[in-house]
C-alpha cells in the first residue's frame, strides 16, 4: 500500500474524536475510586471521631500529605503519556512530598523524647498498613493503567510506575482516614514502603500494557 493511500484512510478515520488523556483519566478514576471507597467502607471504615480529631496536627499532616502526593503524581502521570512533554519539572516538583515528610519527621523527633521514637515508628499496625494500602490501591491502579493505554508514553515502565505512585497515593489517602498511627515516623516508614510496592507493581504492569 502506498503511503499516500494509507494517509487517505487515516484522514477518513479522523472524524472519530478521541479522548484527551486528562479526560480519559478522570473518567476511569470515577469507577476506580468508587470501588476503593466501597471496599474502604465495607472493610475498614472511618476512624472513630475523625472529625473531632481533625485539629490534631499529625493526622491533618498525614491527610494533607496524601492529597499533595495525589495532585503531584497525577500531574506527572499526564506528562508521562504525552510525547515530548516536559516530564522533568513535574518529576522535580514531586520531591515536595518527601521533603515535607522529612521536615515533619524532624519536627516529631524534636517534639517527642527519644525513648518513644521506636514505638512511634513501629506503631500498632505496620503490617496491616503494608497490606491495606496496596489493597485499597488496586482498583484505582487498574483504572489508571487502562486509561493510560489511550496515551503514548515514551517509557512504558516509567509511566506504569507513575500510575502505581498515583494509585498508591489514593490508597494511602483512604487508609490514612482509618489508621490510628499518625506519627510522621510511622508514615515515613510504612506508607512509603506500601506506596513503593504499588509503584513497582505499576511499573511491571506498565512495561507490558502501556506499549504502543
Amino acid at each position: 500500500m502506498k503511503t499516500g493511500d494509507l494517509i487517505r484512510a487515516l484522514a477518513a478515520d479522523s472524524e472519530i474524536r478521541l479522548r484527551p488523556p486528562g479526560q480519559a483519566l478522570v473518567l476511569a478514576l470515577i469507577p476506580g475510586v468508587a470501588i476503593a471507597l466501597g471496599l474502604f467502607v465495607a472493610v475498614f471504615g472511618l476512624r472513630p471521631q475523625i472529625v473531632a480529631l481533625l485539629g490534631e496536627p499529625r493526622l491533618l499532616f498525614k491527610l494533607c500529605l496524601a492529597a499533595v502526593l495525589i495532585g503531584l503524581s497525577g500531574a506527572l502521570v499526564l506528562r508521562l503519556v504525552r510525547p515530548g512533554a516536559d516530564v522533568r519539572s513535574a518529576a522535580l516538583l514531586l520531591a515536595v512530598a518527601p521533603a515535607l515528610l522529612a521536615a515533619a519527621c524532624l519536627a516529631e523527633i524534636f517534639a517527642v523524647p527519644s525513648n518513644e521514637w521506636g514505638q512511634r515508628l513501629l506503631g500498632a499496625n505496620a503490617l496491616f498498613c503494608l497490606k491495606s494500602i496496596p489493597f485499597l490501591s488496586a482498583a484505582p491502579l487498574v483504572a489508571i493503567v487502562l486509561a493510560l493505554r489511550n496515551g503514548a508514553p515514551e517509557h512504558p515502565a516509567l509511566a506504569g510506575a507513575g500510575a502505581g505512585l498515583f494509585a498508591g497515593a489514593i490508597g494511602a489517602a483512604f487508609y490514612a482516614a482509618h489508621c490510628p498511627d499518625d506519627s510522621p515516623l510511622f508514615v515515613a516508614a510504612w506508607y512509603t514502603l506500601a506506596i513503593a510496592i504499588v509503584t513497582v507493581i505499576g511499573a511491571v504492569a506498565g512495561a507490558r500494557l502501556l506499549r504502543w
Binding site: P21, R82, W212
Partner: peptide
C-alpha cells in the same frame, strides 16, 4: 503515521507540535 493518527489526542493544542511529532 499510524501512531501519530491513533495518538493524536495526546497532543496538547497549546503546546508546540514539533517536539510531540
Amino acid at each position: 503515521l499510524l501512531a501519530i493518527h491513533l495518538k493524536r489526542q495526546t497532543w496538547d493544542a497549546d503546546a508546540p507540535i514539533g517536539p510531540w511529532l
